[in-house]
Computed example of a mutant assay.
Amino acid sequence: MNAEDRIAAASNFLLQSPPGEINDVLNDVRDIIQNDDALQSGILPALKEYNLAQFTTVDVPGCDHQVIVSEAGRIKSLDGGEDRFFDPRSKSTFVFDHLRLEASDPQPHEVDMDAESYRSSLESSTLAYLAAHFEEGVASVFSTPDSTKRYIIQVVANKYNPQNFWSGRWRSEYIVDLGENKVEGKVLVNVHYYEQGNVQLSTTHTVSFTLPPSIAQLQPAQATPKILALIEAEEAQYQASLNDAYHEMGEKTYKNLRRALPITKQKIDWDKVLGYKLGAELTASKGVFGGS
C-alpha cells in the first residue's frame, strides 16, 4: 500500500470515528502513516468534513458560550483563503482550526436586521428548550441568506464516559420555513459501547410537520415557544421509540446472542471440560453394562 492509499484509509477511519473518540483514532492512524506532516495535510479534508457533519462545538473568543461549527454557519472564502464561521449570538465570525478544534481571529459581522428579530426570539426559545432537556448541550440558530423567513435550528449534546467504555452524541437540525408554514428536520443519534467488544448504534429520524396558521399571526416572542413545543413533542416521541428499541434488544436480541447455560444453570469450567466428558462416558457405561 502506497502513501496515498494509506492516507485514504486513514481518512476513512476518521470519518467513521465514534463520538468523542476521534483523537484516539487519529493517534492510531499515525502508526499507519508514520509521517506527521503527510498525515496532517492528507487528512485535513476528512477532518473538515467530520467536524461539520458532527456539529463540533467551540468556545467563541471573548464570549462565555459555545457555537456549533457546521455548514449552516460556514462563510466560504471567495479568494481561496480560509473559510470563516459565523456565531449568530455574538454576531461575529472566526477562523476554525479543524485539527486543534480552536477558534481564532474573531471579527464583527453584519446581520440581516429584517430576519434578526425572529431569529433571536427563536434562539431564546431554543436555549430554554436546551436547558430543560439537554444537559451541557449546545444550540445555534441561523437565518438563511436567501430568505428572511427560513431559519435553521441546530442542537448537539455529547456524553462521553471512557471509564465505562461508552460514548454518545445527539444531533438535531430543523429548518423552520415561515413562508411555507412548515418545519422539516432530522435527528441523528450515535452511541458506542466498547467494553470487551465493539457495538455501535447509528440512527437517523426525519421530522416534518405543518405549523398551525395561528402561529404565523403571532409576534416572535409568542410564536417561537410554540414552535419549540412542537419540536419537543416530536423528539419526545422519538426518544420513547428509542427506549422501546433498547428494551427489546435487551430482552430479546441480546439474549438470543448469548450462549445458553447447561441444565444445571451453572457456567461451564472449561479447564475441567475433559472431566465432564469422562463423567458422561462413565455414566453411559453404567447404563449399558449395568454397573453399580
Rank of each mutant, 00 (worst) to 15 (best):
L78P: 13
D79K: 12
G81N: 08
D83Q: 13
F85E: 07
F86Y: 12
P88I: 05
R89A: 13
S90Q: 11
S92D: 09
S92G: 13
V95C: 13
F96S: 04
D97C: 07
L99V: 15
R100D: 14
L101Y: 09
E102Y: 12
A103G: 13
P108D: 07
H109R: 06
D112T: 12
D112M: 13
D112N: 15
D114K: 02
S117Y: 11
Y118H: 06
R119D: 03
S120G: 03
S120Y: 03
S120F: 01
S121M: 01
S121W: 00
L122F: 04
S124F: 11
S124A: 15
S125V: 02
L127N: 12
L127A: 12
L127C: 10
A128R: 11
A131V: 11
A131I: 05
H133L: 08
F134C: 07
E135T: 12
E135H: 11
G137S: 03
V138Y: 00
S140A: 01
V141S: 00
F142Q: 01
F142S: 07
S143D: 04
T144I: 08
P145F: 08
S147I: 00
K149C: 00
Y151H: 05
Y151D: 04
I152P: 01
I152Q: 00
Q154P: 01
Q154L: 05
V155I: 15
V156K: 00
V156L: 07
A157D: 11
K159M: 10
Y160M: 15
Y160N: 15
N161L: 12
P162W: 05
P162E: 13
P162D: 14
Q163Y: 14
Q163N: 14
N164S: 15
N164A: 14
F165C: 06
W166N: 07
W166D: 04
W166R: 08
S167G: 05
S167Q: 04
G168P: 03
W170G: 00
W170E: 09
R171W: 07
R171D: 05
E173S: 15
I175P: 08
D177C: 03
L178G: 00
L178I: 03
L178C: 06
G179V: 03
E180S: 15
N181H: 10
V183R: 00
E184Q: 11
